[in-house]
Design a protein around this nucleic acid. Structure first.
Lengths: 94, 94
DNA sequence: GAATTAGGTTTATAATGTAAACTACTTTAC
DNA sequence: GTAAAGTAGTTTACATTATAAACCTAATTC
């Protein structure tokens, strides 16, 4: 009856991250932090989980001398998001 | 940017329960158990949380000699569900 | 050169979800 | 009639998850 919801995406912050990345295709850590309102610590952890799952790619470089973390969604991430939304529809359509 | 998602509804099982109750208006414990595939213990706990929040009303009676638990969604529950869905749209629209 | 800010990561704790174990009663089998 | 199995749940203990506080490294400001 109810399809399982990918637990990795069924989390407010991780869903917001993916939702952002779907539209922009590339985003800096601080940009995501501002948009989501998350604390840096929490964001760091959640980005790591999405990365470990292969849903996003994380690139660490330097902007001048400051560290710069950039995130890009992967095909796997896009697919997972689409599946998640599809499953979710079952729950929220009246 | 991203509205908060009611944590009480942002849970697969509780969302499934509310989703069911939205359409049927009254459902027995065992019916919900079958439809959601949840274990009785888990279902009992989650129904309790929804009830404590005032999202559903729980009625305990007897069918013949067996205990019978029936759930009905409240106006508050309907409102919460609608708000949740509305907030969620922000996350899942591309 | 001390304090503040930037850009994060690590870790400790709180909150949550879930299944296993249990209660209470009923029905069926012997 | 009583032992075994089934029904309808609840309680409790454990595992997972989420989150913020504390920390780190380096740069900037005063």
């Amino acid at each position: 009856m109810f399809k399982d919801l990918d637990p990795l995406l069924h989390s407010q912050l991780r869903l917001a991250i993916i939702s952002l990345l779907i539209s922009v295709e590339s985003a800096e850590f601080t940009f995501i932090k501002e948009k989501t309102g998350a604390t840096a610590g929490n964001l760091s952890v959640q980005i790591d989980k999405l990365s470990t799952a292969g849903y996003i790619n994380v690139n660490k470089s330097f902007k001048g001398k400051m560290p710069l973390t950039t995130c890009i969604i992967t095909k796997k991430g896009i697919k997972a998001f689409e599946d998640y939304v599809k499953s979710l529809q079952q729950y929220i359509k009246k």
